[in-house]
Design a protein around this nucleic acid. Structure first.
Length: 232
DNA sequence: GCATTAACCACAG
DNA sequence: CTGTGGTTAATGC
């Protein structure tokens, strides 16, 4: 027999990182979520999800940055996206065939909730508004992937690297001054290129005075010029 | 043809 | 892990 926690003890209810879909759940529904999930921490580099593994969990990233990466034909890793909390990760894999189609690794210290799929699915079936919000966030995600796909292949490497730097500044760190959470090799995997190309292009940007780079600390100096470059 | 872009390799710190 | 230089192949003008 499952022990019911009193509503005051519901961790999900007071969660400051509640997803937009979860924010519309009522207390009873949040209790279901709470009683069927666990919340755990990950160190940088730790794998949160392994490609190919079977799953009955919906994963929700409450803290940190993580990379979604897929191993392609012969051991070449490709970063599909950098996920920033708070987001669901791997939802399509669970709904489709319960096999994770890509890995997820922590780039910074991360925290994530693992939610039992059956309970989650029940909420989706029972609460149309919740389902609607979930569809919206999944749709935005798909559109983001399509845009990335086109930009990655059509822009030249210089343009795409500029775009990524601006993306970090505007959408991930909300500052022109940030610490890259990636090694040069990972940056290469993110743009579908080699680490050498990344090094050379970043060096060009530094020489042209567009950015400053101390180790992993990036400062964007000439944002307008970088924006111009990112269009090519 | 010649220039540009970027991958691959080797090697050094 | 990061940075450099040389070489090579593809593509564009």
């Amino acid at each position: 027999m499952e022990r019911e926690k009193p509503i005051q003890d519901c961790r999900c209810q007071g969660c400051n990182f509640k997803s937009i879909p979860a924010s519309i759940l009522n207390n009873e529904e949040l209790k279901i979520l709470c009683n069927n999930s666990v919340h755990i921490e990950f160190q940088p580099g730790e794998k949160i999800i392994k490609q190919g593994s079977f799953t009955t969990n919906i994963v929700y990233l409450t803290q940190g940055l993580a990379k979604l990466h897929m191993t392609g034909p012969l051991n070449k890793d490709e970063i599909l996206k950098i996920a920033k909390s708070s987001v669901f990760i791997g939802v399509p894999s669970v709904f489709a065939d319960r096999i994770f189609h890509y890995s997820v690794s922590a780039l910074t210290k991360c925290e994530a909730c693992f939610i039992d799929f059956n309970s989650f699915e029940q909420l989706v079936k029972d609460n149309g508004t919740f389902a609607h919000e979930l569809i919206i966030s999944l749709s935005e995600d798909v559109i983001g992937h399509f845009h990335r796909c086109v930009n990655k292949t059509q822009k030249n490497k210089t343009g795409y690297i500029a775009e990524i730097l601006l993306d970090f500044a505007d959408n991930y760190f909300e500052s022109n001054d940030f610490t890259l959470p990636l090694s040069r090799a990972e940056f290469g995997e993110l743009i579908g290129s080699s680490r050498e190309t990344v090094i050379r292009i970043l060096q060009e940007f530094i020489n042209d005075g567009l950015i400053k780079d101390e180790g992993k600390k990036i400062t964007i100096i000439e944002k307008e010029k970088l924006e111009k470059i990112s269009e090519r």
